[in-house]
Structure formats: structure tokens, C-alpha cells
Nucleic acid binder design. Structure first.
Lengths: 217, 217
DNA sequence: TCAAAATTGACTAATCTGGTCAATTGCAGT
DNA sequence: ACTGCAATTGACCAGATTAGTCAATTTTGA
């Protein structure tokens, strides 16, 4: 069930993009609660299609789930991981650009990262077997590239670069989490985008102050 | 359904503690997926009791859920929030003690904070109405007390204390998250407790270095 | 105009749902 | 040993939900 799926070659890809998007989105959202708790009835209702159509394209519930797994990875890699500018040697600047990319991803594919995270943390209860390995591989690849080619001389001498990078990443994650919850509509999201950016830039400025050597004056 | 429940006076409290613990634990875990996805059958199976007994004590599924909500708050407040030493004016030290308390809580009540968090983030789909208010009140109370009586003179002059405290909290949360996932058994957990502590103390040391003024030499 | 492709939704058999209740067990008091 | 009450059981219920099917219909493109 977990053999690699060629996303581009999948039946569903010849469907009208808008409708396909509705299906994928509804499915990603429903599977956030784990494979077993997801209902195909809910998915078709949310996507506004008939039951038969879903099974026409995906065969079984597992087929759908499996497709989503590969699809989500594909998007994640192509629209996020591959776009990071790994030649930027100032890691804080690099992370700043990552935040923007991630923001973009979250805007274009609202349920994608939630789905992947859920699939990973609940892997025991889902039917996929190769998935855990994939997830960790991608994760390891990302962190590997993230620590590569970093100009560590920018850090204060008494600061461990790895710890520092962790702190920054955890903080960014924590910050974005703190902004989610009450407002859910994409409208609100766009409105607050500006304040979001300036606020987070305040944190980046702070990271520079506390983690980097003082600029020569 | 959401009127305050006197936990101590509840029927279930006269039950043999070991059995009661099994029930509460199983229920907390099952409700992590939201009220509607939780199955009373799963709960009784996991707790090793009969269906009838559960409904004898709690009446309905909502009655059980409601009890758990108040129970979880009660434990959270009495065994965590109330025990924090708010007179410690060095906020980093205070947060360090909080980490230990939280660790303790997670050890004694493994499913409790997950349950509360889920109940909050999914409040739309659960049947409780007063809950969201309670959660936010407790949260606000905690953060309020957390920023109270803090010796801000310890911070570097160019560091905003609130941002700094956020960074520390997010980092602690991120760190503990990064340690969860693969190992789940309580055994592993206890084994790694030592390394966990020294590792996290490394981060506390770093926080001191980067956020506080240099100690007079 | 016609065949192929896309799409529908009523239908199924199986499982699962929250909840009930008569019957059984365990136990304290006599 | 007997009684009476509380604790506990699990078979049972009617209704909902499950993944999946398929004959029938609509849409499409040439």
C-alpha cells in the first residue's frame, strides 16, 4: 500500500484543478484525526462530490490516504525545502527566509503540515509502513542541510551554534503557534500578515543582538 | 452540562483509586481525539471495566467528558500552577523549577495536558460551553503571575523582557516536544530523565549567558 | 450523433454508537 | 448463616455510520 506513487501520473491529476483541490483539502483535513477516525462520507460531503467519484479515483480509503502521503511530501519538498536558499551563510537570515516560505506554504496548503505532523505522530495507528522512515529521512535531510555551510563565526564565542539554531527554530514555531487558534479564516490571516511580519522581525533582531557578536563599531 | 462539578464529592471518588485511575486515564486518552471521535466502548475496554459501570458512575458520555474537564483543571492547578514559586524573582530560575514541576505532572498524569490542549484547540466540536472561558482564564492567570514580580534588572538593557521570556518558554516547549515520539514507555522515560535534565540545564545556562547582563567579574 | 469518460447516489452488509437493565457478585452488619 | 445494599457485569437494543459497489445518468469531445 505504501509503494511510491507517481503523483504526476495519478488519475486525479487530470481532474479540473479546482475540484481536485477541494477533494485533497477535505481529505487532508479529515485525516488529521488519524486514519481510522477519518470518514470517507465526511470527505465527500465536504468536497461536494459523490461517494462513487472518490472511490473511482482512489479505489480504497487506504489508496486515498497513501496518495495524500506522497502528495504532501511532494508539495512540502518542492514548495518549501527545495526553495530554501542554502547558500545564505548567515543562518539567521536564512531562517528568516524560511519563515516566509513556510508562511507561503501554510497559505497555499492550509491543512498540509498538520496532516503530515499528525501522520507522523500517530504513525502507529495508520496503515502505512514506509512512512515513518520517509518522514524522518526528509526531516534529517532538512536539518542536515540547515546546519551546512553556516557561518559560525558570526556567533558569539561562548554560544553553541547548534543550541542557538534550535532556540531560534523552537521560538519561531512557538510564535506561529501562539498566533493560531481563534482566527481561522483566510481573510483574517491576510489582514494580520503585516503585523505578523514586523512582530517576528522584532524577534529576529533580538536573536541577532543576543546570539551574534556585536558588530564592530 | 458544564456547571461546575465538585470533583471531591463525585461518586467516582469513593472508588478504589487504582481502578479509578485506570478509568480516568483511559478516558483522557480516548478524548484526545475530540468528543465525537471518542468511543465509550474503547474506554471501558482499555480501563478493563464493564460498560454498565461507566454509565453507572457518569450517566452519559457528556457527563464523563464534563467530569474530566473539571478533574483535569483541578489537577493542573493544584499540582502545577499553585506549586510554582512566584516569589523567586530570577525568572530563569523560576522557569527552571516550572520545568521540573511540569515534568512531574507529565509523569504522574501522562494524558492530562494532551487532553486539556486538545479540548481547547477543538472546543468548537466539543459539547462544553463554559470551557473555553475557563481555559483562557487559567492561562491568563498563569501568564499574569508569570510576569509578576520579575527582576527585570537582570536582563540586558537592550533586551525586551517579555520577548525574552517568550523565547525561553517556546524553547522549553520545543525541546520537550523533540524528546517525545519514539520512546513512549514510562520506563524509557525514567531512564532518560537524567540526561534530559543535564541537557536542559545546558540551555538554561545559555539563556543566562545571552539574556542576562554579564555577572560583575 | 455517438461512444467514452466522468459523475451520481441509492444501496448493502457489517460494524459501531451511546445507553439500558435484569442478573450476579462482593461485602458489611447482624 | 442470613440479609440487604452497593458494586459490577455483559448481553442486548435501535439507530447511526462504516467502506465500498454499481447500474444509471450526465458531460465531454470529435
Amino acid at each position: 500500500m505504501s509503494q511510491p506513487i507517481d503523483i504526476e501520473a495519478h488519475k486525479i491529476m487530470s481532474m479540473e484543478p479546482e475540484k481536485r483541490g477541494r477533494i485533497i483539502n477535505a481529505a487532508l483535513e479529515e485525516f488529521r484525526n488519524g486514519f481510522h477516525h477519518a470518514s470517507t462520507d465526511h470527505i465527500v460531503r465536504e468536497a461536494g462530490i459523490s461517494k462513487g467519484l472518490l472511490f473511482h479515483y482512489f479505489g480504497t480509503k487506504e489508496g486515498l490516504y497513501s496518495f495524500l502521503l506522497w502528495y504532501a511530501f511532494d508539495v512540502m519538498v518542492k514548495e518549501y525545502i527545495d526553495l530554501i536558499n542554502y547558500s545564505e551563510r548567515d543562518i539567521i537570515e536564512r531562517l528568516r527566509q524560511m519563515v516566509l516560505l513556510k508562511q507561503d506554504l501554510a497559505y497555499k496548503h492550509p491543512n498540509l503540515s498538520d496532516f503530515l505532523l499528525a501522520a507522523y505522530t500517530r504513525e502507529r495507528e495508520d496503515p502505512s509502513d514506509q512512512f515513518s522512515g520517509m518522514y524522518q529521512a526528509v526531516q534529517a535531510d532538512l536539518t542536515g542541510r540547515l546546519y551546512e555551510n553556516v557561518d559560525r563565526s558570526l556567533f558569539r564565542d561562548d554560544v553553541d551554534a547548534e543550541k542557538a539554531i534550535n532556540i531560534i527554530q523552537w521560538s519561531l514555531f512557538g510564535y506561529s503557534n501562539s498566533k493560531i487558534g481563534k482566527d481561522k479564516t483566510i481573510g483574517d490571516y491576510q489582514e494580520e500578515y503585516g503585523t505578523y511580519l514586523t512582530e517576528i522581525d522584532g524577534y529576529f533582531k533580538l536573536f541577532r543582538q543576543i546570539l551574534y557578536k556585536e558588530a564592530a563599531s
